[in-house]
Each structure stands twice: as structure tokens, then as C-alpha cells.
Write a protein that binds this DNA or RNA. Structure first.
Lengths: 189, 189
DNA sequence: GTCTATACGCAGATAGAC
DNA sequence: GTCTATCTGCGTATAGAC
């Protein structure tokens, strides 16, 4: 960490992450990744034995990033409501990307589940990071464990649905309007 | 219509529809479809020139089916609320399939958008059939056109999110609980 | 109409030179 | 470590026999 330049391996991961998100895992070939990184296809296998290995590294990397973000939100605010607001605010700030490519977490998960990829459970684990974090926030709002879990699943399904519809249709106002509703929902809890 | 036996063409369409839904468009090969239909791969091209042609036919077929369903709901009830209930009830009855394979409409749409498939707009048209029908129901509940459209998009995004989360996680109660909430939401309109 | 045989291209993966 | 050359398998698509 703190290195001036990314290692090749790190560069592959960040490029692959971007391409997996924008084009999907299946549509992203070794040629695509190696061309974007600026290395030959053959060189690839020095760093990763197989395509799934890159996927595993990408997911691992994302899990680390998500974990860090959740910690930051915890530090930035001690009110459960404000923390939940941070999540919604993040989704708002991603609105252009979501509109173009879908939810960064959800779209990859959906694809991997359908592909029956061996790492699909690693992918869904990303969502579970958010869910478990949300459960804590709702618990701190004095809901019991069962209810907190239900509320977390509800909030996640809301944002997933909003992302999907925003991705499928060109309605600029839609995402922001729905996120505003979610903020009111959080306030009223 | 009313034929005792499906034509080969019709059988290909219904088999392809099923496989596209359960395994996704990309993962479904000509071999898969022809094996399921019981014909040779070569024979395939007598009925459809290319894979995209089957997709187009599948979507066209679905659009016809959806149109019929919406008409049925219109005939079965004259109350806008009851009609909207029909939609939610349908989603409830599909809960096992949704859990296993995702929303029959949404999952294919999401995939085709990501694939940048030329027929992705035909696919999203399926969702628009539902949306426009919902807009009529909300209008009949005396909402203005803009608000009706927003409510329709809201309802669709809710069901899409519920489908996605139900598909991603093995929570049997989740879908039914959320659909119940949607019914309350419709009642309170 | 339905079949078999085959062409073609692409993506994943390997071997070996440098 | 990075490259070029090459292999293999699969999926789409075509040709032509029956």
C-alpha cells in the first residue's frame, strides 16, 4: 500500500473490475482486458491462471473496498439514520453510472448467479456486507433482530429495483425521486 | 390457434423461451435448444436464420402473451385496485420460479441490455406494456398523468428489486412479505 | 423438411523463445 | 516477466445429401 505505481497485477484487477461492471463478466474477454492494460494475452497467465481467478481477485478487492467504505460511514457519523443516509447518498452520487451500467454490486451478482459461476456466492457476499451493516443500523434504532433483517432486505431490494429500472429506461428524474422517498422512509423509522 | 399439435417453429419458440429464462440468452446454445426440441442443429436454420431471430420471435410471443394477460385482468375486474392486485398476485404465484431464475421479464431485459443485443429495446417493451397498463389504473384512481407514471415506475421497481433479491438469496418468506406490503400500499392509494 | 458433415471465428489456455 | 506462436473446444452458421 502507498506504492507510487500500481503493480501489473493490481492494474489488471482494476481494469477487469471496470470492464466486468460496464460490459459484464461474460462479454469481457482476455483480449479486452490485456488490451486495456497494455500487455499481451500470453503475459496474462503469468499473473492469473484462469479467467475465474481474475474474477475472484476482483471480488476480493471489492469486498475490501466495501468494508472500508462501511467503516468510514461508521466513523463519519454515530447516528444510525445518518449512516443509512450515507448509503442512499452514495447511490445518488452514482446515478449516472447506474443509469448507464446498472448497480455496481447488483449487476455483477445477477450475472454470476445466472452463469452459475463458482464465485457467485462470493459476489452475493458483497451484498451481504451491506445487509449486515444495515441490520446493525436498524438494531440501533431499536428494532429486534428479525425486523432489522427484514428492513435491511427491504432497503436493498428497493435500491436494486431502482437501479434496474434506471438502467433499463432513460428517466433522469426517476432515480433521484426514488432515493428521496427512501430518505423520507428512513427518517420516519 | 387451436391446433392439436405445436408446429416445429412454435415448439422451438416455447423451448427457447424457457431456456432463455432459466439459463439466460447467452448461455443457451443452438445445441441446447435443438436437443430440447428433439431436432438436429442443422434443421434449425430452416426455421430461423440466426440466433437473434429466435430471440426476436420469443420476445414477440411474450409480448402477445402479456397483452392477453392484461386484457384478462381488465375483464376480470373493473376496479383499478383489484387490477393492480392481479399483478401482485401473479408475482406471488411465480415466487418459486422467481426465486430460482429471477423475474421472467426483468432478468431477460437486464441481460439483453448488458449484451447490447439489438433486440434489447424489444425486451424492455415488455416492461413498458406493464407500465402503460399500470398508468391507466393509477389514472383511474384519479392521479394525474405525471403522478400515475411515477407510481407505475415505483411499483415496477419494487417488484424488480424484490425479484432480484429473492433470486440472489434463499429467503422463502421475503418475496411474500414484500408483496403483502405492496398490496397494503395499493390499498392505501 | 430433416439430416450429416463441415467451415469459421473466437475465447480460453499452453509452450517455449527472449 | 513479457513476448509470439499455437492448440483446443465451443458456438454459430453453411452446404449439400436424403
Amino acid at each position: 500500500m502507498g506504492a507510487k505505481a500500481q503493480s501489473i497485477r493490481e492494474k489488471i484487477i482494476s481494469v477487469a473490475d471496470d470492464l466486468f461492471y460496464r460490459h459484464g463478466y461474460n462479454r469481457t474477454s482476455f483480449s479486452d482486458i490485456s488490451a486495456a492494460v497494455g500487455i499481451s494475452r500470453g503475459n496474462f497467465y503469468y499473473h492469473f491462471k484462469a479467467k475465474d481467478d481474475i474474477l475472484a481477485a476482483v471480488i476480493e478487492n471489492r469486498i475490501a473496498i466495501i468494508t472500508n467504505v462501511l467503516q468510514e460511514w461508521d466513523q463519519q457519523s454515530h447516528s444510525p439514520r445518518d449512516r443509512l443516509f450515507s448509503y442512499v447518498t452514495m447511490m445518488e452520487s452514482l446515478k449516472d453510472d447506474i443509469h448507464r451500467y446498472g448497480c455496481p454490486v447488483g449487476s455483477v451478482c445477477s450475472e454470476l448467479i445466472k452463469l452459475r459461476n463458482i464465485y457467485h456466492s462470493n459476489a452475493t457476499e458483497m451484498i451481504l456486507l451491506f445487509r449486515d451493516w444495515m441490520v446493525i443500523q436498524f438494531s440501533n434504532l431499536h428494532y429486534d433482530e428479525q425486523k432489522s433483517k427484514q428492513l435491511a432486505m427491504h432497503l436493498l431490494s428497493r435500491t436494486q429495483g431502482i437501479s434496474m429500472m434506471s438502467h433499463a429506461f432513460a428517466d433522469d428524474e426517476f432515480l433521484l425521486r426514488e432515493m428521496q422517498q427512501l430518505k423520507h422512509w428512513i427518517e420516519a423509522l
